[in-house]
Amino acid sequence: MSSLLRPFRWITSVSLAGLVLLAAVLAVASWRVSIAGPLPSDDPAQITGGDTEEGARTYQSRCTGCHSLDANRIGPRHRGVYGRVAGSLPDFDYSSALTQSDIVWNDETLNAWLINPEDLIPGQAMGFRLNDAQARADVIAYLRRESGK
């Protein structure tokens, strides 16, 4: 019996040591994060030239749960959205907030929308946010390309 248990005791002491080490690493890591600031940056000033290929990938994983380029789904279709007035597709059932908005979608307004849509157009229905500044820049560059702008 005891010989059967021995390996487990060994594992326990190793994993205890591992836990202590992990705690130490986490403590250092969280200290570094607190110095470096929150991980995803939402500083609009940080948008630099977005990468359309990265943007296509980001669009695929982050936006296509609700949007497509050419079909209205849970959200409106996106081809042509860059340069379009918000809430202006005749065949999509927008919130009244979006319908009434006269914002035009460009680098700045799309960036603000993806940081926090409710801050830009109160009463909107999207709610979805994209916290990573580079991912926003990439996806905006992609939407711009797909809109022929």
Binding site: Q60, S61, R62, C63, T64, G65, C66, N116, P117, E118, G127, F128, R129, L130, N131
Partner: peptide, 18 residues
Amino acid sequence: ARLELGAANAYLGVIPSF
């Protein structure tokens, strides 16, 4: 798979807005 990945990310992306 595309729809499920999109849905997972959609649910994560709306969390801060609740």
